[in-house]
């Protein structure tokens, strides 16, 4: 029987995305610890990667994942991030098993599926696994675009079902 086309053609993403890992090796510099693992540009390739790697909750404390548009490094200094900021979702330790992994997956799917109305303002997302407080940050390109940034924050809260406030930090302030 003929295989239906949708099983033959991989579903292309609007953008190519890179998965980064931050290793937290004390003997290395911060930049040496930040490693671009691979990049992907189809839904199928994303899932193949996702099934292949550890979940955030399985990472050692001090490690990060970042998913950024290919060509943007997950650091303030990158030209695409300099004028930008991040929406920050804090997760207590007890949420590590209940919320961390599903929030992270939902955020990544929002990114790669271009589900933000102002998706061109999106640079990427970072998940920090830390002793007390895990953090998921969604990085945007230009903090002067207030409506775009607010819409991105609203969509995040809606998708993740967060009722309280979430904070937005300008990178230059965090610097």
């Amino acid at each position: 029987a003929e295989v239906p086309p949708e099983f033959l053609i991989k579903h292309p993403l609007q953008n190519t995305w890179s998965l980064w890992f931050y290793d937290n090796d004390r003997n290395k510099t911060w930049e040496q610890n930040l490693i671009e693992l691979t990049s992907f540009d189809t839904v199928e390739d994303f899932w193949r990667l996702y099934h292949h790697i550890k979940l955030p909750s399985e990472l050692r404390q001090g490690h990060d994942y970042a998913v950024f548009k290919h060509g943007i490094r997950p650091m303030w200094e990158d030209d695409a991030n300099k004028m930008g900021g991040r929406w920050l979702i804090n997760l207590e330790k007890k949420q590590r098993n209940s919320d961390l992994d599903r929030f992270w997956l939902d955020v990544v799917l929002l990114l790669i599926g271009e589900n933000f109305e102002y998706s061109e303002e999106i640079c990427g997302a970072v998940v920090n696994v830390r002793p007390k407080l895990d953090k998921i940050g969604v990085w945007t390109a230009d903090t002067s675009k207030q409506q775009a940034n607010l819409e991105i924050g609203r969509k995040l809260k809606e998708q993740l079902g967060i009722h309280g406030k979430i904070g937005f930090q300008l990178h230059r302030d965090t610097m």
Binding site: P12, V43, W47, L110, G113, E114, N115
Partner: peptide, 18 residues
């Protein structure tokens, strides 16, 4: 311009495709 958008549910449906 146009943009390739995938809903979460659609991407989830491809989670185990070969």
């Amino acid at each position: 311009g146009t943009r390739i958008v995938y809903e979460r549910s659609f991407m989830m449906s491809l989670r185990h495709s070969p």
